[in-house]
Design a protein around this nucleic acid. Structure first.
Lengths: 195, 195
DNA sequence: GAAAAATTTTAATCTGGATTAAAATAATGC
DNA sequence: GCATTATTTTAATCCAGATTAAAATTTTTC
């Protein structure tokens, strides 16, 4: 309820909590994971979580917000560094997958949106739509600069995003597999874009 | 508890129930959908569902079994009709998407497996693994017959399946969109396989 | 090292939703 | 139409898991 001096410690713990929550939600789903499940991962009691968050719903909400931030950052970076549309797509895929399969684990999944309360749901949906729109814009740029063959950017975007979003469903932390994903997926998912 | 004469009616109702359940689970997740939610779709009371099923867990379980059957059938059909590996993949994609976006709605999602009890979970996981293995075999055949460029079939299979499995997350019954998916996805997802 | 603030736990409550049993209604066979 | 069977509802019960309040413990400050 109070936090002044140790802003850092508090934020650090909260961060751990959000990651633990994201992992649980990924594995068992929102309603499928109890607060005790999340707390166990942290070596805490379920009640302790209320020190960091108002209620369970806020927990998912924050997971999504954070996922949105990470998604935006990786896309920003890919756009900043990409030489052309296709190169930008490939970089985005790699950066995204590095985070998802990295030791910090997947940030969040976009599956529990219906569980959010209306205001939060709308906010997250808008963030999600923005992200998709930006990604589609990258595809369009690629078509214009000639690095990507003409295609339905909406459908192509959905296809690629689907593949990415599904990864947490079958990737469970095995680093060997993780490295393989990072190595293979960008190529596989972008192969269809070329002329 | 009893059923003799009207085997047909009973099966018919059960069928409707499974589809309603699958739709709910897709939209809100397993624990997120109450039996009342499922019953509402059917114009029934939650208690009525117990006439068809022992408990809620059995409901998801049956959804998965059915999804497995449908998946196997579409793959069977694609394999039977496919001229070569690539053609088989494309057919499978089309058949699968036609079912998923068809008026009977998505059959089931592979997201709630952790909610199943161990025996059921193992059974469904094996069905799922079998399906993946068969799909990967199709990819291998395509590589051998020269219709598909050499690739890591495991990763490629996961990438394609992920795209497919994610569709129910963003497709919510709009027939126009459904037709577009059927028209575009097979091409998009198989474009990267060609030489 | 003691007071104050921060963090976590213990021990209740409270609630939605699964489950059950008995009763009510609808369908079917004769 | 009557008796039997099939289907659904009504009205409890039951329980896991969210939430809360007060107490205990740990950390920080000076």
């Amino acid at each position: 309820m109070a936090r002044k001096a140790s802003e850092t410690r508090w934020e650090l713990q909260k961060d751990r909590m959000l990651r633990a929550a994201a992992r649980c939600f990924n594995e068992k789903g929102y309603s499928g994971s109890s607060l005790k499940d999340v707390a166990n991962v942290l070596g805490l009691t379920d009640a302790a979580l209320y020190y960091y968050v108002r209620n369970k719903e806020e927990l998912v909400y924050l997971c999504y917000l954070r996922a949105g931030d990470v998604g935006r950052e990786t896309l920003d970076r890919a756009i900043a560094e990409g030489k052309n549309g296709l190169d930008t797509v490939r970089r985005y895929l790699r950066y995204h997958l590095e985070v998802m399969t990295g030791e910090r684990g997947p940030i969040a999944i976009m599956s529990e949106i219906p569980s959010l309360k209306p205001e939060h749901r709308d906010e997250i949906l808008e963030i999600s739509r923005d992200h998709s729109a930006r990604f589609e814009a990258v595809l369009e740029r690629g078509i214009e600069d000639g690095s990507i063959a003409p295609c339905d950017v909406r459908m192509t975007g959905n296809a690629i995003m689907g593949s990415l979003n599904w990864v947490p469903k079958w990737f469970h932390g095995d680093t060997t597999v993780g490295e393989k994903i990072v190595a293979e997926f960008p190529g596989i998912l972008s192969a269809g874009l070329e002329h």
